[in-house]
Simulated assay, not measured.
Amino acid sequence: MPVNLDTYLGVHSQALKLRSQRTEVLAANLANADTPNYQARDIDFKSALAAASSGKSSGVNLATSNARHIGPAGINGTSAPELKYRTPLAPSLDGNTVDTQLEQAAFAENSVRYQATLTFLSSKFRGLMTAITGQ
């Protein structure tokens, strides 16, 4: 009996991709903490995961006029979730909206959730290997 791996893993493989993309966005925010007029961005994880699990893409759909054009893609060719601007709690004089402490806290939380998703997927694969080998 064939097993559909996507069904077996559920939403967790998509969550791992989104967490990875969010890590990149938060790291870019931290890297540009001193850049004048830089606008902090973030991914609305809940809506991005809902869109990814339903198969719908959020945001703007771009068309290419040539097959060799690069489409809007995120990590590993997956569609990029819609980035949203973060509203600053205390705007700076140079127009930068990055709050370093807020970004570090979001980065740490995202890292913990990424690791939890990896742990869950690892246990799913371990259970699948146990079922295949019978040990």
Rank of each mutant, 00 (worst) to 15 (best):
A52N: 11
T78R: 11
H69R: 10
L30A: 00
P88A: 10
T100W: 01
A106P: 01
T7C: 05
Q101K: 13
L83P: 07
G74F: 01
A73P: 03
A33W: 04
D94M: 12
A31C: 07
D34C: 13
V11M: 08
N96L: 07
F107C: 00
G74M: 09
I75H: 09
K84V: 15
P91G: 06
R22Y: 05
T35W: 01
T35D: 08
S79I: 12
A80T: 05
T23C: 03
P81Y: 04
S79W: 03
L18M: 04
Y85Q: 14
R41C: 03
T119S: 15
S54Q: 14
H69P: 01
V11L: 11
Q101D: 14
L102V: 06
S92T: 14
G134Y: 03
V3W: 04
P81K: 04
N4F: 00
K124I: 02
Q115R: 09
S53M: 13
N37H: 06
A48L: 03
N76M: 11
T119C: 09
R19L: 08
L93S: 14
Y114R: 00
Y114G: 04
G134V: 05
A51P: 04
G71T: 10
V112G: 13
N76P: 06
S57D: 08
P91K: 03
T119V: 12
N4D: 14
A63Y: 01
I75M: 09
H12Q: 13
A15N: 03
Y8A: 14
D94F: 10
E103L: 00
G127A: 11
N29L: 02
K84R: 15
D44A: 03
T78S: 15
S54K: 07
V25T: 03
S122E: 06
S122P: 02
I43D: 01
L93A: 15
Q115M: 09
N110V: 06
L30T: 02
P36C: 06
D44F: 00
I70R: 11
A90M: 10
A108R: 09
H12T: 12
Q14R: 14
K17S: 15
S58E: 14
